[in-house]
Design a protein around this nucleic acid. Structure first.
Lengths: 226, 226
DNA sequence: AATTAATTTGCGCGTCGTGCAAACTTGCAC
DNA sequence: GTGCAAGTTTGCACGACGCGCAAATTAATT
């Protein structure tokens, strides 16, 4: 969290926040596609033109919620020790996000958008953007390894799969718990993330092995420790 | 391939094709963002309004190339025997696509779009749509299994990871070979797909294990047989 | 040939996204 | 403080978008 000192940065951050807040409020009240940029601008107390100085579309404004969420995930990942197994790092980073403050905005966004269609374009873009950043982070981590050249395919396949599993866990969670943010619900999310990463780590060996059942391999290696 | 008999369906298919051809031609000639729907309509010999009867945007028109590619992948996957290991089915389905006729349009689209930005929104949407369909296909496959309820998390994590690995292989291939469609280049693509699925099947154990090196586990299980 | 259904087309309208230049705000040095 | 330089907001204008609508055109049915 870099301290923003100058007034300019403060104002900019405030406007940014005001826009996403307004967009979310309108999404809540009127539903997807039933409000315009002008509506957002008015509610946020800025001009239509200024909105476009911050975001190129309504979708982009809403996707900033997802960006925020994924950015903090990235942050968690980057500060894991470099000698830790990479799947373990990913798992831990994702787990840190299963707390109310962090998931709340994303959860609401999900419930408000997935009613109508699938994940909207900008949402997908946010996840994709995060994938690219994981690739960078993982590349840096492997840079100091014995083998000189990093296997680009390995990196991209791994990062993509991790994100896919994270997304899968979230999808299942929302389908199961809706916007429920209770401790019990968050515990389920954590377990889903653990299981998803377990499946990934065990090569998707059996559909039930890495689940809640007291089976051997994956659960022992990736058991939750709280 | 369903035989289209009536004139109506024939015309529709022809128009559809004419539009994507025109869009690709303009993309080739003028570059991303430097032509309008009206340009496409004119080149395709239809009205601007008719374009929107087929696609909701230029991006969507271009993404139909990707959709076609992924749909045929889906088709390959669905006709695999149900008792085959699912990763093996996915691998085989993807491999069938490494032939010139199938990848050529996609390859060109990649070279024309990835110059500027990342994969555009509609491209991502196409991959996501394919993921959803793989989930359906896999769910059907597991439906006739002993365990009654299908593990939704397993399904979604698996499908997402498979697609992510396929995408990773393609990304690396394009970065490496550009639009080269020679047998040698396609052989590389096949190997990349094999390796990516190998990494996935072995739980991303080691960065180099599932590669070309004569290591034990993954390569033996997923070796190419031609 | 006449009827019916599907498709194309032109028109209009509200919205989008952006370049531009004029206001206005902030930071910095004198 | 005063004033200057750099950054930001705003209004305006313009081309493009996406779609509803109804008339015109085309294909299938009898």
């Amino acid at each position: 969290m870099p301290e923003l000192l100058t007034r300019r940065e403060l104002n900019k951050a405030a406007t940014h926040q005001a826009i996403t807040d307004a967009a979310l409020a309108l999404l809540r009240g009127k539903g997807q596609g039933n409000f315009t940029v002008e509506d957002i601008a008015e509610l946020a107390g800025i001009s239509r033109r200024t909105f476009f100085n911050y975001f190129s579309s309504i979708e982009a404004a809403l996707a900033s919620v997802t960006h925020g969420f994924l950015d903090s995930a990235l942050q968690q990942f980057r500060q894991r020790p470099a000698d830790e197994p990479i799947l373990e790092s990913a798992r831990t980073a994702l787990m840190q996000l299963a707390d109310p403050m962090t998931v709340a905005p994303l959860a609401e966004l999900f419930t408000l958008t997935q009613d109508n269609a699938l994940l909207s374009r900008s949402e997908l873009e946010a996840w994709d953007h995060c994938t690219e950043q994981i690739i960078s982070a993982a590349r840096e981590r492997f840079a100091g390894a014995p083998g000189a050249a990093v296997d680009e395919l390995y990196l991209r396949a791994l990062a993509g799969s991790v994100i896919a599993c994270g997304k899968a866990a979230m999808d299942v969670w929302f389908a199961q718990c809706g916007a429920d943010l209770s401790p019990a619900s968050l515990a389920i999310l954590r377990q889903l993330l653990i299981d998803a990463m377990g499946h990934l780590g065990s090569g998707f060996g059996s559909p039930t092995a890495a689940g809640t059942a007291p089976t051997a391999a994956p659960t022992t290696l990736l058991k939750e420790r709280l």
